[in-house]
Amino acid sequence: MKIAYALLGLILLYIYVSIISLLFSGIDRKLVARMQRRIGPPILQPFYDFLKLMSKETIIPSTANFMFKAAPVLMLATVIALLAYTPVGFPPLFATKGDIIVFIYLLTLADFFLILGIISSGNPYGRIGAAREVAMLVSREPAMMLGVFAVMWGISKLNVEKPFSLSSLYEHNIWELGPMAWIAAVVLIYVFLAWLASEIEVGFFNIPEAEEEIAEGTLVEYSGRYLGIIKLAESIKEFIAASLVVAVLFPWQLNMSGIEGYILNLVIHTLKVFVVLLVSKTIFRTVTGRLRITQAINVLWTRVFAASVVGALLLAMGVML
């Protein structure tokens, strides 16, 4: 019975998140346009784009193997499965001890499916994009993992029900760990915003899809329905990644019981996700250009990961002392 309810919740959450994440990308495009003194497309433009892509002819290259067709579907499936482990204002639907591992695993798996689809297309431009995507993936995740694990370890010292679960973030949070942890939290805000920007590949990190550099990179060969699926999966992934940032750093919620409590918390969470995406995506991609792949990886290891180590050590000191 409980599983049936969780499944129903997952379906509703999927519908909600796909609408909201497409809406966010519409608002993002509008805001970027206004920052450049343009009018911009209507806010519902991503929905029209999605419907158009779904109705377009889908072209499969003659050099592609079957993973080319399977990868977008698997990517979307992974992202939907990931929604069950995403904290969206209330604890994740399938929260258990240590589910953060599943979360990180599924988050990277979605990118791996995309890469797999690209290298199955047989287009060398796509392969260059895929190689860059892998390099970015390897460089950006350790910083996030270290930050998340440090925060969860700190929280688990405060007697939570399920240690190392994303639901523990709603029982205690990083700001309760004392003044030392506040400094660590500020460092981690920087780390997580940088990670978010590199996860959704905007601003400095818009490298694998670099249109001007390697002809669309990862998405060269995809068209029609598969492109629509990939775009949808990517914008849901954007929402999920921002949800993680919100849950780790700003998990303040209202204490309300009942179904309206869940809905209210979901709305508050959505607003916080919007603010995080506004800073890390919209403004960041308007004011900065792209780095080269070597520079980006250098930044991710020497600036972001180093800051993450510093933040984790400060947090550990704050908890120990």
Binding site: L31, A33, R34, M35, Q36, R37, R38, I39, G40, I283, T286, V287, T288
Partner: peptide
């Protein structure tokens, strides 16, 4: 340290009318 010289311009633009 990264510099973002465009940031003030962009924020100002956000509150101006579109020039189109």
């Amino acid at each position: 340290m990264i510099r973002l010289p465009l940031l003030p311009t962009v924020i100002k633009n956000l509150f101006k009318r579109p020039a189109t």
